[in-house]
Design a binder for these strands. Structure first.
Lengths: 344, 344
DNA sequence: GAAATAAATGAGAACGATCTCACTTCGGTG
DNA sequence: CACCGAAGTGAGATCGTTCTCATTTATTTC
């Protein structure tokens, strides 16, 4: 490793003390014009730039935030990383990325590691599902006042800010759309154990109830992962057991490909034979002309990042129940058929 | 920010010197059994873990690598990040991610920033195109002996290791497949300015030549970005100007959606009306049953990461022309039609 | 039991930047 | 010319860890 140039080298070359050189670099205090020019010349000549590590140790700030999430290969996740990194860059922050692969132990390990690294803040898309409990010895990691913002998923009862879509409302609206078109037996494909999905199911149920339909749990087909192959299998099973289904409502991304493949295999045409409504996967859905609930991931990332900055600067304090909702848009396309019987 | 626990606190509680406590933590030197136990007890009681920043300053190693790339939202990029992060994690390294958005100035800024942060090494998917020149004042950034591995794209004449697919061979094979099926006018959609794409075009040309066809530059339609909308437009233009085209060969990911949309608009059926062969976009292509050149991004990331470790440890030295080729697989599906005339 | 060796320990320097504090220099005022 | 406040400067401490080096303590050998 090449010996790097320190502020001492600059000071020596400029013929001043380290303190004076530091004043020029940090642009504070009083420095005579003569000294300033000589230091600036030295900086340029040596091509000096401060060692960020030393600054971190001294200033107790690393100018780094961490994004901990399931898997960057997931399109929600990478869109989030993109948005966060863009926002962070503006303020001179770098972004460390950690994949939990939806494993809670790995998530905990990452949080610990990031704290040892004295990262200034953490944006967390937690792997915790609704029925998992934080063990007491790890509770501190989630509850401490270390700056941390939750995204997309919340852990109930934690004093933590959460940024997520208006899942209940958007799902209510999406379901209502299907109901209006006459669909009564709407199958769901989702990874049901996450808080986000629970919310979307709540919106679905609410809409059903308004139409005098009570929710049938059997129509909710769960996958254990965001895996097209599993989605395909689950779809097949759902259609076999419930031939009355006229529409499929997909609550996660990365699943619709599997559903489409299964429909193709069964020679079922989207829309004409079975209606489809999907969360996310915008690129794919555009291609297949599917009505889609499009989350504003860009905004979620931006808001999460800025909220984190506020926490870091002490301008705000995390509090339980603080949830910022970013509205999702429903893009109406051509995958939901009107099956109302015209009777007169 | 909460006052953190230092090794001094541990030493004090255990009733030993900082040096002895350090020996226990670092597990080196000789420590009496008695002292060891007391220090370990203190560590546990205080829940001590070392400050990584201080370690970095002292050891001149940050246990961090950076991945600098165009855009994590791109599927090649995020698969690369995933693979690198997984590999890095095994060795206790964290990964900082930087998006250049294919802007060279931003790339340079990132490299500088990462070096100031004393990141141990850099994996770079450079935004440099074939006709861009590195300015002299920035040359040092690319040519220094700072551990750095190029991925997917190379800058000619640099003393840098490159890890990439066997572009020429795979493209030769893919093109040969089309030629064997009787296609003579094969249109290309690609962002032609990157070294990778140039290589793929070389493979294409080589295959054509073997069939006694000389390459027609007009059949190569360039997009300026990995953008489906642009791909769509370019495809339209290409088809208008060259109705003789019987097959389209797409050399980048993120473009096929645009091509598919344009074909759909023109009521051209994939395979029956026009053959299609695509690099990457595996998920989408599976759905559309398209013959695909699948790069082994997982391996590329892994190899790049391990090569970087070797450079970091001084076990290897970067040298010009060192290019490790990871074979890409051609997955034959059902998007290329046999148009040979049976004449007898 | 003395000498020689090995084990155990702590003081202090180093990494590089920042910042307090004390001291010097300067210009202005009475 | 004496005095004062402000501007300019540098010595040295600090952040938390690691590690050398010198010293003390324990163990072995003759």
């Amino acid at each position: 490793m090449k010996q790097s140039i320190t502020i001492n080298d600059v000071a020596k070359l400029a013929g001043v003390s380290r303190a004076t050189a530091g004043r020029v670099v940090g642009n504070y205090g009083n420095v005579s014009e003569k000294s300033r020019l000589r230091v600036q010349a030295a900086i340029k000549e040596l091509n000096y730039s401060p060692n960020t590590i030393a600054q971190s140790l001294r200033n107790n700030t690393t100018k780094t935030i961490a994004v901990i999430l399931g898997n960057v290969k997931n399109n929600y996740c990478n869109a989030l990383v993109y948005a966060v990194e863009k926002e962070a860059q503006k303020e001179g922050y770098s972004v460390i990325i950690c994949n939990t692969r939806e494993n809670i132990q790995r998530e905990i390990m990452h949080i610990q590691n990031m704290r040892n690294r004295h990262v200034d803040g953490i944006i967390l898309m937690s792997a915790f599902t609704t029925d998992e409990q934080i063990r007491d010895e790890e509770k501190e990691l989630y509850e401490s006042n270390y700056p941390m913002v939750f995204v997309d998923r919340k852990i109930h009862g934690l004093k933590r800010d959460v940024i997520m879509s208006n899942n209940v409302e958007a799902s209510y609206e999406a379901t209502s759309h299907l109901l209006k078109l006459g669909h009564k037996n709407i199958g769901i494909i989702a990874t049901a154990d996450y808080s986000t999905i629970r919310e979307r199911i709540r919106g679905y149920e609410k809409a059903l109830n308004e139409y005098g339909i009570s929710m049938n749990e059997e129509l909710i087909a769960e996958t254990t992962a965001l895996d097209p192959d599993e989605a395909r299998m689950v779809t097949g099973k759902l259609l076999d057991e419930h031939p009355e289904i006229t529409a499929i409502y997909i609550l996660n991304n990365s699943l619709s490909a599997g559903v489409l493949l299964e429909l193709k295999k069964r020679n079922l045409r989207v829309r004409d034979d079975i209606s489809l409504l999907v969360w996310d996967d915008e690129m794919l859905n555009q291609l297949f002309d599917l009505t889609t609930v499009v989350q504003s991931i860009d905004n979620i990332g931006k808001v999460a990042c800025n909220r984190l900055f506020e926490l870091m600067q002490g301008k705000a304090e995390a509090r339980e129940g603080y949830t910022e909702r970013i509205p999702a848009q429903i893009v109406y396309r051509n995958s939901c058929k009107n099956i109302n019987v015209i009777d007169n």
